[in-house]
Nucleic acid binder design. Structure first.
Lengths: 227, 227
DNA sequence: GTATCATTCAAGCGATCTATTGAATATAAG
DNA sequence: CTTATATTCAATAGATCGCTTGAATGATAC
C-alpha cells in the first residue's frame, strides 16, 4: 500500500474517502442511511437500486469509513459511523452550491422557491420550539419517522398529506422538514400547504443534521456503545 | 446532462465535486494552491508532477469549482475559489483521521509526535499573539512566505533552519507552522529545534486555514474583486 | 513578422470503476 | 436437515480515469 512517502500515503487515504463520495448513488444512499439504521433491502428500495448494487456501494462506503454495519438476524443494518460524516456532506453541498454552475442551475430551477419558502435556521427553530410557537411537521415515510424525529413533530408522509389536512392547525405557524436540505419532500409539502392556505415554512436542514448537532431527538433507538 | 430527476441531477453535481477530490495528486495540488496564487509550472514542481499532468488535474479541479484561474502574461495563475474549499478539505481530513485505519496508521507512525508536539490551537495562538508572548516561525519556502503569512512571522525555510539558528530566540517560546495540519515541514522543524534546546510547539493548522477564518495576514497580494 | 515560453488539447493505452449475473454464505424457520 | 431469506462474492463487459506523447494555442520578446 504505502510504498510512497508518508505524505503521499496520507493524501491517498484522504482520496479514498473522497472516492467513496464520488458517485451520485452513494451520496443518495448516505442520505438515506443518515435517517437511521436500515437493512440493505430497505435502502435499495428507497434509492431505486438493485439489492446487489446497493450492497456493493454500501461496502465501498464502509471501506472508506463513512458507514458501519452490524448484523441483526437475517439483516445487516447500516448506519453512519460518525457525526463528522454529516459535516463532510454539508461541506460538499456548500462548495457545490456556491461554485458549481450545474448545481446552481438545478437548485434555481427545481428548488426555485428555496428562498421564497423562507427557510427556518436551526437556531431559530430551537428558539421557536422552546417557546412552543410552531407546529413541527415531519413529511418523511412512517418507517423513517419511527427511526427518530425532532421532538414533538407530527408525522404525515407527503403522500398522505392531501387527505390528512384536518390534522394540521389553521392559524398556527407550521415548520416542515424531511431528510436533509435538498430533500424534495418538504419543498413539496410547503408548496402544497401554502396553496391550501396554511402558514408554513421549511426547516433549512433535515433530521440527520439536527441530530448531528447534538439536539434532542425522539423515538430513536438507543445509541448503543458498539463492540 | 440532467436527463434524470432533479434530485439525481443534484446528487451528480455533488459527486462531481467529490470526484475532483478523489485523487491524491489533486489533494496535494489543492494544498499548494491554498498557499496563494501560483502558475502551473510552480505547482508541478512542488508536487513533483509533469507539467501536462498537473495542468490536467488543475483543469479537473476547476471544472469542479474548487479552483479558479486567471491569465497573467504567459502564466496562468491558479487559486482556491473560496474559503468553503478549505472547510471541505478540513472535513475530509477529519473523517479520514477518525474512521480510516490506514490514515490513522500513517499518522501514528510518521506524525507520531503529533500530540507530543503539543499543538497550539488557532484560538490559543490568537491570544498568545495578542499578548506577544510567542515568536512565530514560518518554515515554508521563501516564495510561499511571500504570497502571504501570519502577522509578524519570521521565515526560515526548513532547509535553511540548521544554519540560521542564531535568528531564533533562546528563552522565548516559538510556534512554528507551514502549509497545513499534515504538512511535514513544521513537524520536522519542531523535532530539530527541540533537539537543539529550543522551546517550540506546533500550530495545529497552517497558513490557508488561518486565512480562511478571516484572521489577519501579511504580505498577501490584495484580494482583487474578480471579473 | 519570427522565436520563445507557458499552458492546453488530442489521441492512445493500461488501469480502475460500475452494474449485472449467478453462485456462495449466513441466519432463521419448519 | 431442508427451505427460505438477506446479503455478499466472483466473474464479466462496458465505461471512465490517469498519464504520456506530440501538436496546437496564447502571450511576450526580438
Amino acid at each position: 500500500m504505502s510504498t510512497r512517502s508518508p505524505k503521499r500515503a496520507l493524501y491517498e487515504s484522504f482520496a479514498l474517502v473522497a472516492k467513496a463520495l464520488a458517485h451520485g448513488h452513494r451520496l443518495e444512499l448516505l442520505e438515506h442511511v443518515g435517517q437511521g439504521e436500515r437493512p440493505v433491502e430497505a435502502l435499495a428500495a428507497v434509492a431505486g437500486l438493485s439489492v446487489a448494487n446497493t450492497s456493493q456501494h454500501l461496502l465501498q462506503l464502509r471501506r472508506a469509513g463513512l458507514v458501519a454495519s452490524r448484523r441483526d438476524g437475517k439483516n445487516v443494518l447500516y448506519r453512519l459511523t460518525d457525526k463528522s460524516v454529516i459535516d463532510l456532506l454539508a461541506s460538499l453541498r456548500r462548495v457545490a452550491e456556491t461554485n458549481v454552475a450545474e448545481a446552481q442551475q438545478v437548485i434555481a430551477q427545481y428548488f426555485h422557491a428555496r428562498d421564497a419558502l423562507d427557510p427556518v435556521s436551526r437556531t431559530e427553530l430551537v428558539k421557536r420550539l422552546r417557546e412552543k410557537s410552531v407546529t413541527l411537521l415531519d413529511v418523511r415515510p412512517e418507517d423513517e419517522f419511527a427511526l427518530g424525529h425532532l421532538p414533538g413533530a407530527i408525522n404525515i408522509p407527503l403522500k398522505a398529506l392531501e387527505r390528512r389536512l384536518a390534522q394540521l392547525p389553521r392559524g398556527r405557524e407550521i415548520v416542515s422538514y424531511c431528510r436533509g436540505p435538498y430533500c424534495v419532500l418538504s419543498f413539496e409539502a410547503v408548496a402544497l400547504l401554502r396553496k391550501r392556505g396554511f402558514k408554513i415554512r421549511r426547516f433549512e436542514d433535515g433530521f440527520p443534521e439536527w441530530a448531528a448537532h447534538g439536539l434532542p431527538v425522539e423515538g430513536a433507538p438507543v445509541d448503543r456503545a458498539d463492540g
